[in-house]
Design a protein around this nucleic acid. Structure first.
Length: 250
DNA sequence: TCATTAAATTGTT
DNA sequence: AACAATTTAATGA
């Protein structure tokens, strides 16, 4: 298992729907918008929801493929990325538990505009395009959630552009973590983000060593606490405001 | 439930 | 990239 490279999207397998199963009652609780629905809506949704286990490197959806589902992460960690014209992959964001994606393309019934790849063994669920639109046509609560989602996601993309311009590795890690700990977008994360330093490296585009170094700096700055297989946030605002100048002033 | 072993993750060079 | 140290997960009595 080489630690330097991650399977590229081009030669990775795509998850098949035939591998999916029905959702368990316990797993339904991990869906942030389920409480916004009434009895009838919830029944139809639970009936429609499919769950599939995704192995590291596997693709949940691929650029250009027709939209089939609106996806959500129940457990694990996914990466949203795209290939530039030059063939270099650019990571937009990580998707921790509680995150839902693809609403933009589902809304317009277009093809997916990015690749979603599992960084680790993950549990992914989703509802069909038909059910998505059915909900959109009758549930105000669902509409509010989707609107919030679109709005917050826009903010994330803007933040991602800023992160790309940052030269300091410490700052990049800090800002990326700030995005990953988004309490509204990823309510499943809570105070503890389950992510290894290797996975964070794939996400931010840094070596594991450099990520380790950055995390230690952030821990010294009292912004996070490093735990085995994960990170705990102590100061979310501080993470987002973090700059090298502040650290140097210590 | 506990002890042992294997695997995963972190810290360091 | 390699290595040692640490933590967790798996196994079986």
């Amino acid at each position: 298992m080489p630690s330097t490279s991650f399977p590229s999207a081009s030669d990775a397998a795509t998850v098949r729907v035939s591998r999916s199963r029905a959702i368990l009652a316990d797993e339904v609780r991990g869906i942030p918008w389920i409480d916004r629905l009434d009895e009838e809506e919830r029944t139809r949704v639970v009936d429609d929801l499919r769950v599939v286990e995704v192995d590291p490197g596997e693709l949940v959806c691929r650029v250009g493929r027709p939209v089939t589902y609106w996806f959500g992460v129940l457990d694990g960690l996914l990466k949203m990325s795209n290939d530039t014209a030059l063939g270099m992959p650019i990571t937009f964001t990580g998707l921790p538990p509680g995150g839902w994606f693809g609403e933009g393309t589902v809304l317009k019934r277009e093809a997916y505009r990015y690749n979603i790849q599992a960084l680790r063994k993950s549990l992914v669920t989703g509802i069909s395009v038909a059910t998505f639109h059915w909900l959109l046509d009758r549930s105000i609560g669902f509409n509010r959630y989707v609107m919030m989602q679109l709005n917050e996601r826009l903010g994330q993309f803007i933040a991602a552009r800023e992160i790309d311009r940052l030269t300091s590795a410490n700052e990049r890690v800090a800002r990326s973590l700030g995005a990953l700990f988004h309490p509204v977008l990823y309510p499943g994360v809570g105070g503890l983000l389950r992510i290894t330093q290797l996975e964070l490296g794939y996400l931010v585009g840094l070596s594991r060593q450099r990520v380790n170094e950055a995390l230690q700096a952030l821990q010294v700055a009292q912004l996070i606490r490093i735990e085995y297989g994960g990170l705990r946030v102590l100061d979310l605002d501080g993470l987002r405001r973090y700059t090298e100048a502040v650290a140097a002033a210590r």
